[in-house]
């Protein structure tokens, strides 16, 4: 179990700054997680003097995913925030350079959101569809990442 501290978004910057003040000066990880109703941000910082680590977590509502940028504390956080921003559609207030880092096409849906369609999965045979013990399931099971409405849409479009 990893010890972590959950902080409200409006304390995100202050808590991170506090960690720097307490010697946790090395930015180890800043990552996003899609919790559907919320977007979660995970920050892991390390004290290089004694290798102790501290993990901070904050959650912002998916309807208004907004959190202050930490780029003034660690310059390297700017890249990680740019990636989280394009992958999870999170806005970092006060970010010095909020351009997308990896994606080029602005019309792309945030790739790591669970709600983002994975169209290639509709045309790729799912290995999990093979019936165990040659039994027919009553309801065909959909692969992870594919939603029923996409299947309906795809079959409706081709019919």
């Amino acid at each position: 179990m990893i010890a972590h501290q959950i902080v409200p978004p409006d304390e995100w910057h202050a808590q991170a700054q506090g960690a720097v003040g307490a010697g946790f000066t090395f930015l180890d990880l800043l990552a996003g997680i899609d919790r559907v109703e919320e977007r979660e941000l995970v920050l892991r910082v390390v004290n290089p003097e004694n290798d102790e680590a501290r993990t901070l977590i904050t959650r912002v509502p998916a309807s208004d995913p907004r959190v202050p940028s930490l780029a003034d504390l660690w310059a390297g956080a700017a890249w990680q925030e740019r990636e989280i921003s394009e992958m999870f559609d999170v806005v970092f207030d006060g970010h010095p350079d909020p351009r997308p880092l990896l994606t080029r096409d602005e019309s792309t849906e945030p790739p790591l959101l669970k709600s983002t369609a994975l169209p290639e999965r509709l045309s790729t045979p799912w290995p999990g569809a093979a019936e165990a013990q040659e039994r027919k399931r009553r309801r065909p099971q959909l692969p992870p990442g594919v939603r029923q409405e996409w299947v309906d849409e795809a079959s409706g479009g081709s019919a």
Binding site: P127, G128, A130, A132, Q133, Q141, P143, P144
Partner: peptide, 18 residues
């Protein structure tokens, strides 16, 4: 050959024939 791993795999990298 219960297929649980095949169905849980996020990258679809496992196949089972039985």
């Amino acid at each position: 050959s219960c297929m649980v791993c095949v169905q849980e795999c996020p990258t679809w990298c496992i196949t089972i024939d039985s």
